[in-house]
């Protein structure tokens, strides 16, 4: 696993990627609409180039995962991805309650061992929090529920 990262090279490369994504999706724009994004993209290209040069000459090396456990971050991100897919198929309430439950249970392992009781507490919290906020938003604040097949 990568322990340290050349942050200048990484930033420069990222700048180039963003530049490319926008530059090749620009399509045809009239001068009035195109002037400003073009100028920004050119500056971005220049800044990215400068960062790449700096990354070679005077790199700023940093730890790649300053926060501790990278695995938990990966799990969280995966969870968010699954949530996004899930709301289309089983609806917001079910997906979100599951996500809450999964996050709570897996993070609680850092302080307590897994047990049936623990799982029940997490499940109860998931139902209360997700259900509670959902009700507050839809019933009191009149926010229309998500337009997905199920609530």
């Amino acid at each position: 696993m990568i322990q340290r990262i050349n942050s200048d090279l990484a930033a420069g490369a990222l700048g180039l990627v963003v530049f490319a994504v926008f530059w090749f999706n620009r399509g045809t724009l009239s001068p009035l609409s195109g002037m400003f994004p073009d100028a920004v993209l050119m500056v971005m290209l220049a800044v990215s180039g400068a960062l790449l040069v700096k990354g070679v000459l005077r790199a700023d090396i940093r730890p790649a995962f300053p926060d501790g456990n990278a695995g938990r971050v990966a799990l969280m991100i995966a969870g968010l991805g699954l949530w996004w897919l899930g709301i289309r198929y089983v609806g917001f309430l079910v997906t979100s309650t599951t996500l809450f439950f999964a996050i709570a249970l897996s993070l609680s392992r850092t302080v307590e061992t897994l047990s049936t009781r623990r799982a029940l507490v997490c499940a109860a919290a998931a139902v209360i929090v997700v259900g509670g906020f959902y009700l507050v938003f839809t019933q009191i604040l009149y926010i229309r529920p998500f337009r997905t097949p199920l609530p």
Binding site: S7, D8, R26, G27, S33, M44, L51
Partner: peptide, 26 residues
């Protein structure tokens, strides 16, 4: 440089949508 790159990212994200003058979608 990184601040400038961040600023550029913000600026370009801000151009997504209908252009304020010209009315085209970008």
């Amino acid at each position: 440089l990184k601040g400038a790159l961040g600023g550029c990212i913000g600026l370009i994200l801000g151009t997504i949508g209908v252009s304020p003058v010209g009315g085209e979608t970008r």
